[in-house]
Design a protein around this nucleic acid. Structure first.
Length: 567
RNA sequence: CGGGGCGUGGCGCAGCCUGGUAGCGCACCUGAAUGGGGUUCAGGAGGCCGAGCGUUCGAAUCGCUCCGCCCCGACCA
């Protein structure tokens, strides 16, 4: 591609809205443009990178026998009513009516379509196992997009679905996908950490997320450097402190004016936060009021809480009015005297005697509160967040907390879609069984952004060869002075072009100053920068710069040409 | 959805407080010089100042409403 013809422009100034290096560089180098909140166009360069990423994924999916297909973006709402997700998912799913007043939705993912196809096509166990995938646009009307391509509303995802006769088959398919993912991210140049993940209220029996460690990540990971333990904080269960036994003391009310947070309370009473109980109040999507109690030195983990109380529709913080209506006082709250509330207590609290807890009276707390004696939990569970330095559940060494971006996930769905949607097969036993599914997603744009996060320097992007839009960037200098420069450059360019699409290079044939050309070449990030100039010709050929190492050498023209057309 | 910030040419910004009909840098066009690190000079083109309503003789500037975008939080099968 001749740069003089390429639909793009580079920017000298950093776009004001781009905080992440990847976002800034992709905008500045002319790979993407924003159309709206979380909605991006891929310019030709960006599209080419996307295609390269897609191709890597395609090869690895094909390699494990996953079959490529394509499913629609617009679905009849009835399909989603069948699985029940039409009612469970909130406003992140775009709903609309077609001209005949039929309810339609924009696809957020494609489990329903796969299940409906299975129902139509699969009759016998002989047709299983089977895996399919496609690259397709998803629209998720996220409340807030962020980080350029990291969190968007419209994006292309590779989503694969495994379909098996039973759990053992699912385990095999899952393992194949796991291994394929490992190869994919290695080829993409992304170091990932695989963490155990939340399966959510939709059920399923297991999930892993492939995480790219990055400070802008939206997930917090609990990682042990001493062993291989790694989990999303949403589900991480780590060791809790030992608590010294203590005889229960009489409960006693004490004035604590203004001490509405654990920090101020602990300071006021001159005790450690571990001597206090923290109350958090939630409403479930189905209208239940939850009081969650953790020790003052911990935070409530909402994912764990959602799962423990099986909160359909999730949790939202309760309002002050809702708290008052149940006999409690925000800022001075505890389950003592609570009405119409489900009390969920972290197991550590039950082992911690004589805690300070709210008196449910403005400006007062209670000393020496003991679970069981002073109030009765409806549920005792592990609902606290793992903290930096807590003991690893596998080896006991302190864990660290890291931020990560989810670049891929694999999920054992089980029969959550096939049972409600009636996707069954006739087994060897002559009985109908539900097909056992798994789903496996990789968001393309997010991966492109992460690749840039991992591969750039102060000057620009440095694409790994596997995903570079073009293998080389050819620059001419002094072309106006010396016709031989143009001759050689044209010869190299045409030779690469003739060698096939995979060999095509980027050719900066613009009448720009050398500074502009070199600066753009480094910004754009092709792995090899080839310079043809009177100087390089006099030195024996073409100057080649390795973008990653900065290493330069002059090579004979014929040798460079061979490298462009060869394997 | 709550809190904060910002909408002025493709990008980055000034002007707004103290109303008087829009400016700078980069990019773009023309010409000349230059030709190995965003080169120089000269001359240009491009903006109903996010939208609507209001105040005023007069609004980019003041007021109200709306829309959009960014950040923090909530949210993220």
């Amino acid at each position: 591609m001749r740069l003089s013809r390429l639909f793009f422009t580079t920017l000298r100034d950093d776009p004001a809205d781009a905080e992440m290096a990847s976002h800034r560089l992709l905008l500045r180098a002319g790979y993407v443009r924003q159309l709206g909140a979380g909605i991006y166009s891929l310019l030709p360069l960006g599209f080419r990178v996307n295609q390269r990423v897609e191709q890597v994924i395609r090869e690895e999916m094909d390699r494990i026998g996953c079959q490529e297909m394509e499913m629609p973006v617009v679905h009849p709402a009835d399909l989603w009513r069948e699985s029940g997700r039409y009612y469970k998912i909130g406003s992140e799913m775009v709903r609309f009516k077609d001209r005949a007043d039929r309810d339609m939705v924009l696809a957020m993912t494609h489990e329903e379509v796969v299940a409906s196809l299975l129902r139509d096509i699969v009759r016998s166990y002989r047709q299983l196992p089977m895996m399919v995938y496609h690259f397709q646009t998803k629209f998720r009307d996220e409340p807030r997009s962020r980080g350029g391509l990291i969190r968007v509303r419209e994006f292309v995802m590779k989503d694969a679905y495994s379909c098996d006769r039973d759990e053992a088959g699912l385990d095999r398919s899952y393992q194949l996908q796991y291994e394929a993912y490992t190869r994919i991210f290695e080829r993409l140049g992304l170091d990932t950490v695989v963490v155990g993940a939340d399966v959510g209220i939709m059920g399923g029996s297991g999930a892993h997320e492939f995480m790219f460690l990055n400070e802008f990540g939206e997930d917090t990971l609990v990682i042990c450097d001493a062993c291989d333990y790694a989990a999303n904080q949403q589900i991480a269960v780590v060791g809790k402190p030992e608590v010294a036994a203590e005889a229960p003391k009489p409960m006693e009310e004490i004035a604590t004016p203004g001490a509405t947070t654990i920090a101020t309370l602990a300071r006021f009473l001159e005790v450690g936060p571990e001597r206090t109980a923290k109350a958090a109040f939630f409403m479930t999507g189905d209208g239940r009021f939850i009081v969650a109690i953790v020790r003052g030195d911990f935070d409530v983990n909402e994912t764990k809480l959602v799962n423990e109380v099986k909160a359909v529709g999730g949790l939202r913080p309760a309002t002050v009015e809702e708290i008052k209506a149940r006999g409690m006082e925000a800022g001075y709250g505890s389950p003592i005297g609570a009405r119409d509330a489900t009390v969920v207590v972290d197991e550590l609290v039950t082992r911690s005697p004589n805690l300070v807890a709210g008196a449910n009276r403005d400006g007062y707390h209670l000393l020496n509160v003991n679970v069981g004696r002073d109030y009765t939990p409806d549920l005792v569970a592990e609902i606290a967040n793992a903290r930096e330095g807590d003991p690893c559940p596998q080896c006991g060494k302190p864990v660290t907390l890291r931020k990560g971006i989810e670049v891929g996930n694999i999920f054992k769905l089980g029969t959550d879609f096939t049972i409600p949607m009636g996707a069954t097969f006739l087994g060897e036993d002559g009985i109908a069984h539900p097909i056992v599914m798994g789903s496996y997603g990789i968001g393309l744009g997010r991966n492109v952004a992460c690749i840039v996060e991992a591969h750039h320097d102060a000057k620009g992007i440095i694409w790994p060869a596997e995903v570079a839009p073009y293998p080389a960037h050819l620059v001419t200098v002094g072309a106006n002075k010396d016709p031989h420069v143009v001759e050689v450059a044209e010869r190299l360019y045409e030779a690469a072009l003739a060698a096939g699409p995979r060999h095509e290079i980027l050719y900066d044939d613009r009448d720009e100053s050398p500074g502009v050309k070199f600066t753009d070449a480094e910004l754009l990030g092709m792995p090899r920068i080839l310079t043809v100039s009177p100087r390089s010709l006099a030195a024996g050929g073409v100057e080649e710069t390795d973008r990653a190492t900065g290493e330069r050498k002059v090579r004979p023209i014929a040798e460079v040409e061979a490298s462009l057309v060869g394997g």
